[in-house]
């Protein structure tokens, strides 16, 4: 274990863990990192790539700053910064995460020609008429008849699901898998869900199956507090 004033290096089986002090100025930190690695330069041979994991405590590092640290440690990239861990994130990032984790509630009939696009999950109370379309980066839940197009995981999440009280869509889309509706003679009377199975097929099944194939769907837990 090697210690400097603001920089702590720790060897792990994956490489090096650098704990950086979060109270000093960034320029001091850079200087200290430089000192540390100069002092111990003999410890690293140039043939192997050593992965570095940064832990920055309560300091937020921009990408620019991370690359500055990389340059100070080793411009030749034999020692590469692999990941940066921090206690803090940007407000924008946090808002994005909240949005992604949240459920958008819409109470409306989605009519022909209308498109609803939400980030996170979508809960629609009302029908999606033929020619209408609902999109969500997460799951799509429809308390009503789905007769138009539903697109769950529209940013590429293949684990997203679509649930509807009456599953009679024109098309179902999950992630980048597009499927036209199954040819069914009878209108389904109970609610159903659609998901992608292990063989990359889009499956429509009873709602009870969902518990088995997507056990982690719960996002309201412990008295309605969002977590995860």
């Amino acid at each position: 274990m090697v210690n400097s004033h603001n920089v702590t290096i720790k060897g792990t089986k994956d490489g090096l863990l650098l704990r950086l002090d979060d109270t000093c100025s960034f320029s001091t930190l850079l200087k200290d990192i430089k000192e540390t690695f100069k002092t111990h330069a003999h410890m690293y041979d140039e043939k192997h790539v050593v992965h570095i994991h940064l832990h920055t405590g309560n300091r937020y590092l921009t990408e620019e700053q991370v690359s500055q640290i990389q340059d100070v440690i080793d411009p030749k990239r034999n020692l590469t910064i692999d990941s940066v861990d921090s206690n803090v994130i940007l407000k924008e990032e946090a808002e994005r995460i909240i949005k992604e984790k949240s459920i958008t509630l819409i109470h409306n009939v989605v009519r022909s020609g209308q498109v609803i696009n939400t980030s996170g999950d979508l809960l629609l109370i009302g029908d999606v008429n033929p020619g209408g379309m609902v999109m969500a980066s997460g799951n799509v839940f429809i308390l009503g008849r789905l007769k138009g197009i539903a697109h769950a995981g529209c940013l590429g999440d293949m684990s997203a699901v679509i649930c509807a009280s009456q599953m009679t869509p024109t098309q179902l889309r999950i992630g980048d898998l597009y499927r036209r509706s199954p040819d069914r003679d009878v209108v389904p009377t109970e609610a159903e869900c659609a998901f992608i199975d292990d063989e990359d097929d889009l499956i429509i099944d009873k709602l009870t199956v969902l518990k088995k194939v997507r056990p982690n769907l719960n996002c309201f837990a412990e008295g309605g507090i969002l977590h995860g």
């Binding site: 009519r111 022909s112 020609g113 209408g132």
Partner: peptide, 11 residues
Amino acid sequence: RDADRIIGLLE
């Protein structure tokens, strides 16, 4: 279908 579209616009 077209009526549905129009209703959407009228709303």
